[in-house]
Design a protein around this nucleic acid. Structure first.
Length: 743
DNA sequence: AGCACGCCGACT
DNA sequence: GTCGGCGTGCTC
């Protein structure tokens, strides 16, 4: 029996056939937080088939939606039915995409309209394409010639039509020069044909693969040629050449005329990766990530829908592009936790990529040097094919990893680098190599303390201390973005000159490096919400070219960049990410992060060294890292997860209750827990205060649901939410299926 | 996401 | 008495 909206949503997945005498209507899903498609009367003539993009009236507004089925879904009073305004001239949303919306909405317990919204996140794609204009040489040279104008005219001398931005870039001048020349009559503005996306050529530059690589590539190519759904875990040590290997599978799919999607963590979408692709296939893939402009998004969305975009490299949201004929998805760095989206629709892109492969009947490749426990278990249980690469190419050896016991060999007071690490850096520089110091903490210091009154400077909106960013002269909150100019006097007691920064961030380590190695060029590589993508790309280029000799970096450095001259990696605080209490993936994440970051060393030739500063050199994670014994670590971790029925052996869902006032949040969370339906094999834990109780002015309580793998967790959650008390006032409830963050 | 409806404080 | 604050619910 259908008892509430959550279950009703599930029940209506089975569409009814139209009945005699009923008004003709089709369901249209609009990209809003709506669970259901609404029925509309079709325009004149035939009813548009499912997938058609249509404009419909909704309330007083007009919205673009998608025809979601062949027959009306619910018994709405006929006089309530409105008519479709128009059918849009946009390729229909493919059936696979529509089924993906339904699947993701059902799995994450998100309104279907919200998931559709992700699929339509390119508003320009639905507007008619305006004509594009370009410039070509024409007429006499201008009366006043300048060096900049000369450069432009030289470039334009070939008579080709170029877009304004392109011409300016090629000539190395600003767009204003072009406008000036056009006004002077030396350039003429002409309409350009819409650009054809470049076609990647699978035969452009096939690589020479080592025997092990060739064998691995063979398996992946087989899966592509065979067609149909399969998942392959491509598991190879850093520097084993996984990218070259999966590029061969990409080539096979392109050769079959199919589209290819390569998912990367957002920050790994560097020009380094795009250039590598271009070297192999003759042109760059299309990019898809959050930093793209509206026009660009629209163009790419359309190109993907028409099947003209053959290869797309994108961040997790690229999964929701309307591929016309996707033949292969690659998830690179599949272990990356950033594939989990933590807001709006909370989905794990790696898992959705696999589901999309299943729905679209095509292979999926998961690639990593440090695969997730989930994927390793799937491979062991035979659900995924496991393809391993064990040797680094060109004889490069894996780095030699050692621990520096901070208890025995501590840094001086107020310093963060131990004598052993400092001397290792010195040796590395003497050998004309690069050194990387890794600390997963942005800014200068994570805490500012008043020595007069003991006050810790905290965020007014979050239960967190403000982090000093000295270069910008600011204290900021890493949870909400709150910014405070660095005060001279204590905000609590007003005493001046007694504020002291406590603990290190990358900026502070960089300061220590500058003191110890005053003449050595250094670079900080840190992901900051204020630094933009191009800035980060520039820094990465400066490092890979060898201009920076010492690199101080956060997480960002671990993400698949290739730094040829790097011989030493020093981990400043090896204990930092282990200390995440309550997070079942803390050990796994630490192991992956350390392996990835240390794997940056010695990729070109042997002799890479990794040094981890730690207070717990005997911790199992540290021992596994030092001995390089991944299999023992995995066996331990997998056994522990299995015993505790944690993912992937069990399923988790977090319920986060938040409100503007603490008692309100707590009261509702407790009422919610009481309303949980009885279920023998499902455990509901909490509510408990979230580790970060307050974020953005909202107090948060968490509940955790744990169930065995074969239990329908979504059905349980739906039944629960349908009988839950109404959330009143400022109370909000968020359901996070398969949570990755436990804060 | 908009937008209308509805129930409590400072105004003509 | 009314204007208007934004909390709540509906949009086929």
């Amino acid at each position: 029996m259908v008892t509430g909206p959550y279950q009703a949503a599930q029940a209506r997945l089975d569409l009814e056939e139209p009945q005699e005498g009923q008004v003709r209507a089709v369901p249209v899903l609009v990209p809003l937080a709506l669970e259901e498609a609404y029925d509309y009367q079709p325009p004149e003539g035939e009813a548009p088939p499912p997938g058609t993009f249509v404009r419909v009236p909704l309330g007083s507004a007009r919205r673009i939606g998608v025809v979601w089925g062949a027959a009306r879904t619910a018994d709405v009073a006929p006089k309530k039915l409105k008519s479709i305004i128009e059918v849009l001239d946009v390729p229909a949303l493919p059936a696979v995409s529509r089924r993906l919306v339904d699947w993701v909405a059902n799995y994450t317990l998100s309104p279907r309209g919200m998931v559709l919204k992700m699929m339509m996140s390119a508003p320009r794609a639905f507007e008619p394409e305006g004509p594009r204009f370009g410039y070509r040489a024409a007429g006499p040279p201008p009366d006043r010639m300048t060096p900049a104008r000369e450069k432009v005219l030289n470039v334009a001398a070939d008579g080709a039509v170029r877009a304004k931005a392109e011409l300016a870039r090629e000539a190395g001048v600003s767009a204003a020069v072009i406008e000036g020349l056009a006004a002077a009559g030396s350039l003429i503005r002409v309409e350009m044909p819409p650009p054809r996306p470049a076609l990647p050529d699978p035969e452009h530059a096939p690589p020479e693969l080592a025997p092990e690589q060739a064998e691995a590539a063979g398996k992946l190519i087989d899966a592509v040629r065979r067609g149909g759904f399969s998942v392959c875990l491509l598991d190879g040590v850093t520097g084993a050449g996984k990218t070259e290997v999966y590029f061969e599978a990409v080539a096979a799919a392109l050769a079959r005329g199919q589209q290819v999607l390569i998912l990367l963590p957002e920050i790994a979408l560097t020009s380094q990766f795009l250039d590598r692709f271009a070297k192999r296939f003759g042109c760059r893939p299309m990019e898809w990530h959050s930093a793209m402009g509206a026009a660009e998004r629209g163009r790419i969305w359309r190109a993907v829908a028409k099947g003209e975009a053959r290869a797309v490299a994108g961040a997790r949201s690229a999964l929701f592009l309307p591929f016309a004929d996707l033949g292969l998805t690659v998830v690179d760095e599949e272990h990356e936790q950033s594939f989990k989206q933590e807001d709006y629709v909370r989905y794990q892109a790696r898992d959705v990529a696999v589901v999309r492969g299943k729905l679209g009947k095509h292979p999926v490749i998961l690639s990593s040097a440090t695969p997730s426990i989930e994927s390793v278990v799937n491979a062991r249980q035979g659900r995924y094919e496991h393809v391993r690469l064990t040797s680094r190419y060109a004889g490069a050896a894996l780095p030699d990893i050692r621990a520096i016991d901070l208890r025995a060999d501590p840094p001086e007071r107020g310093r963060w680098l131990s004598p052993a690490l400092v001397s290792a850096v010195r040796d590395t520089l003497a050998a004309d190599k690069q050194a990387l110091l890794f600390l997963n903490r942005r800014g200068y210091a994570p805490l500012t303390l008043c020595r007069a009154c003991g006050y810790r400077i905290e965020c007014p909106q979050c239960s967190a201390t403000l982090v000093e960013h000295r270069a910008r002269g600011k204290l900021t909150c890493h949870h909400c973005g709150f910014v405070l100019p660095r005060p001279g006097d204590c905000p609590a007691c007003g005493v001046s000159g007694k504020l002291v920064p406590c603990g290190p961030g990358v900026e502070r380590v960089a300061e220590e490096v500058a003191e110890r190695f005053p003449d050595v060029p250094a670079a900080i590589l840190s992901s900051d919400f204020t630094t933009n993508l191009s800035e980060v790309r520039e820094t990465i280029a400066r490092i890979s070219s060898g201009k920076a000799r010492i690199v101080i970096g956060t997480q960002l450095v671990a993400k698949g960049h290739h730094f040829p001259g790097l011989a030493l990696v020093g981990v400043v605080d090896g204990d930092l990410s282990l200390a995440q209490g309550g997070d079942p993936r803390a050990a796994e994440r630490t192991f992956q992060l350390m392996q990835q970051v240390i794997g940056r060393a010695g990729r070109e030739e042997s002799g890479g060294v990794g040094l981890i500063q730690t207070h717990a050199p005997d911790h199992p994670v540290m021992r596994a890292l030092i001995s390089g014994d991944r299999d023992t670590f995995l066996a331990r971790e997998i056994a522990a997860r299995e015993a505790a029925v944690l993912p992937p052996f069990g399923r988790l869902a977090a319920i986060i209750v938040s409100a503007g006032a603490k008692p309100e949040a707590e009261r509702y969370a407790q009422a919610l827990a009481k309303a949980a339906p009885p279920a023998a094999r499902i455990e509901v834990m909490g509510p408990a205060e979230a580790p970060l109780v307050l974020i953005r002015g909202r107090y948060r309580y968490r509940l955790l649901v744990k169930a065995p793998r074969n239990v329908d967790l979504q059905a349980f959650l739906r039944a629960w939410m349908d009988r839950a008390p109404l959330a009143k006032g400022s109370v909000r409830v968020i359901i996070d299926v398969d949570p990755y963050s436990f804060l």
